[in-house]
Amino acid sequence: MLKKISFTVNGKALSLEIDIRESLLEVLRTRLGFTGVKKGCGVGECGACTVLIDGTPIDSCIYLAVWAEGKSITTIEGVASKDGELSKVQQAFVEEGAIQCGFCTPGLVLTTTALAESGKEYTREELKRELSGHFCRCTGYNNILKAAEKSLKPEEHQCACGHHGEK
């Protein structure tokens, strides 16, 4: 069965007809071309497909596309500024060597972005817990944690708009 949904992706309002059985992951990747959304398991185990739905990190592979009606979605493609300037979180991942094969990276950057934008402070252990829904087989997580800590450093977190790479 087809259904028309309207939602916002990376700030752009969209309306399209989808098969009600489709996951948000499928719609984002194959219908809309947001291939930065990765699929590592398809069943909510790995975190690679994470997107922000109204600011909350969600595994898009187990989120039906119909549920996205009226929601605002951010994929990795929407994190850097239009002119290509990396966000503070992205910059931290690059600088801390938190990227190897890169397959887990979009999901981790988005979850970290949500944490940074929450304005909350996290202890190291809390931060680990928040990131524990993401598998990474390459990095042993050490540099990912460093990147997340750097992204959340309070002195770099004054601007309310949060993400466009204020340094």
Binding site: T35, G36, I76, V79, G84, L86, V94, I99, G102, T105
Partner: peptide, 12 residues
């Protein structure tokens, strides 16, 4: 910096 870091961190 890795030559592919930006491509990977932006989803490109």
């Amino acid at each position: 910096q890795r030559v592919d870091a930006v491509a990977k961190v932006t989803g490109k």
